[in-house]
C-alpha cells in the first residue's frame, strides 16, 4: 500500500503536478526565442511592476476564499469601493492617511456584508457575492452619476500618489514591496497560523471542521473580510497608479484572479490553493499576456490565448488527477 503512495515522478498523476511549471517554462522559452526583448531585465521589471502586482494582491485574497471552499465574485466591488472612498475623501480635502484608512474600511464593509449573507442568511458564497457584485455596481453608478471617473491630477495630490505608487525603495517600486508584504502576510495566515488550519479544514470538509469544534461562522467571516481588505489595498494602489477612480474597473480582476488561483492549485498534489501557487499563476498569466503582446498579437488574441491557456492547464490538472473509486 505504501508503494501506491509514493508515485513515480513519471506517472500521469505526478506529471499533472508539474503542468504549471511546464507551461511557465514553455511560455518563457517560446517568447524569449521569438521576441528580442522578452527576457530583458527592463521587460521583466515592467511586467512585474505593472501587471503582476495588482492582480497578485487580489488573487491572494481569492486564494484565501477558495482555500476555504468558497468563492468571491465581489472582489471587484471591494477594489472599487476602496478606491471610490479613498478618492472621494481626498477630493473633499481629507488627509491621505485618513483616506487610505477609510478606503480599506469600505472594503472591509463589503467583506463583512458577504459574511453576513453567508453566515446569517445562509446563502452560498457564489450567490451571495454575485448579489453583492450587482449591488456594488449600482452603488458606484449612483455615486458617480453613471460612471464618471474621479480624476485628481492637480499638483496638490501628486505627492500622495508619488508616495503610494511611484516611489522606489531599494531599487524596487513601492507597490512591489506592498505585494511582498501582502504575500508574506497571507503566507503566514494560510501556512503558519491556526487560521490556516481552520481554512484548510473548511476547504477540505466543512463537516469535519464543524464536528471538530471549529467556529465555522467566525472563521468564514475572517476569510471574506481578509479577502476584501486585500482587494481594498489593490484598489488604493490601482487608483493611485492611474490617478483616478474609474467606476467598475475592479471587475476586470475577477476572472484572472479565479484563473490564477486555480492554476496555482494545479501545483500541489491535493489541488489546494497556496500562496506560491497563486503567485505562480499570476506570473504565468502576466508573462503570457506580455509575450503575446511582444509577438504582436493584439489584445483580443491575447484574451483568446489566455482563455485557452487556462482551459488547457486546468483540463490537465483536473483530468489527469487520479480517479477515486
Amino acid at each position: 500500500m505504501m508503494e501506491d503512495v509514493r508515485h513515480s515522478i513519471f506517472s500521469l498523476d505526478a506529471l499533472s503536478n508539474y503542468i504549471v511549471l511546464f507551461a511557465f517554462a514553455a511560455v518563457m522559452i517560446i517568447f524569449s526565442v521569438t521576441t528580442a526583448n522578452f527576457l530583458s531585465l527592463e521587460n521583466i521589471y515592467n511586467v512585474i511592476a505593472n501587471k503582476v502586482v495588482l492582480l497578485a494582491i487580489v488573487s491572494l485574497g481569492m486564494t484565501i476564499v477558495i482555500a476555504a471552499g468558497g468563492i468571491d465574485l465581489s472582489v471587484g466591488v471591494s477594489v472599487d469601493m476602496s478606491a471610490l472612498v479613498f478618492f472621494s475623501l481626498l477630493a473633499a480635502g481629507f488627509s491621505a492617511p485618513l483616506g487610505v484608512f477609510a478606503g480599506l474600511f469600505a472594503a472591509f464593509t463589503v467583506g463583512a456584508f458577504n459574511a453576513f449573507l453567508i453566515n446569517k442568511l445562509r446563502i452560498d458564497a457564489f450567490l451571495a457575492t454575485l448579489g453583492v457584485l450587482f449591488i456594488g455596481s449600482s452603488v458606484q453608478r449612483l455615486a458617480t452619476n453613471g460612471g464618471t471617473p474621479i480624476t485628481l491630477t492637480t499638483q496638490e495630490y501628486a505627492p500622495v500618489f508619488q508616495v503610494i505608487s511611484d516611489s522606489q525603495l531599494l531599487g524596487l517600486p513601492t507597490p512591489v514591496w506592498i505585494l511582498a508584504l501582502c504575500s508574506i502576510a497571507v503566507f503566514l495566515l494560510l501556512h503558519k497560523m491556526v487560521f490556516g488550519r481552520y481554512v484548510a479544514a473548511l476547504g477540505a470538509k466543512p463537516g469535519v471542521a464543524l464536528y471538530s469544534g471549529v467556529r465555522v461562522p467566525r472563521e468564514l467571516s475572517k476569510v471574506f473580510i481578509y479577502c476584501a481588505v486585500l482587494c481594498g489595498i489593490a484598489g488604493i494602489l490601482l487608483s493611485s497608479q492611474v490617478k483616478s477612480y474609474i467606476p467598475l474597473s475592479g471587475d476586470a480582476f475577477l476572472l484572472d484572479a479565479i484563473g490564477a488561483t486555480f492554476i496555482g492549485t494545479a501545483m500541489t498534489s491535493d489541488r489546494r490553493p497556496t500562496v506560491v501557487g497563486t503567485l505562480m499563476g499570476v506570473c504565468l498569466l502576466a508573462f503570457m499576456r506580455n509575450g503575446l503582446l511582444l509577438v504582436g498579437w493584439n489584445f483580443f488574441w491575447q484574451q483568446v490565448g489566455i482563455g485557452v491557456l487556462i482551459f488547457v492547464v486546468l483540463a490537465f490538472s483536473f483530468g489527469l488527477r487520479k480517479r477515486e473509486e
Binding site: 488550519r197 484548510a200 479544514a201 477540505a204 470538509k205 463537516g207 464543524l210 464536528y211 471538530s212 491535493d270
Partner: peptide
Amino acid sequence: AHGVAVDLSVSDNISI
C-alpha cells in the same frame, strides 16, 4: 463527512 478530512494529512486531522 464528519470524522476525517481525507484530503488532509494525518497531522492536520489530529491537530485540528
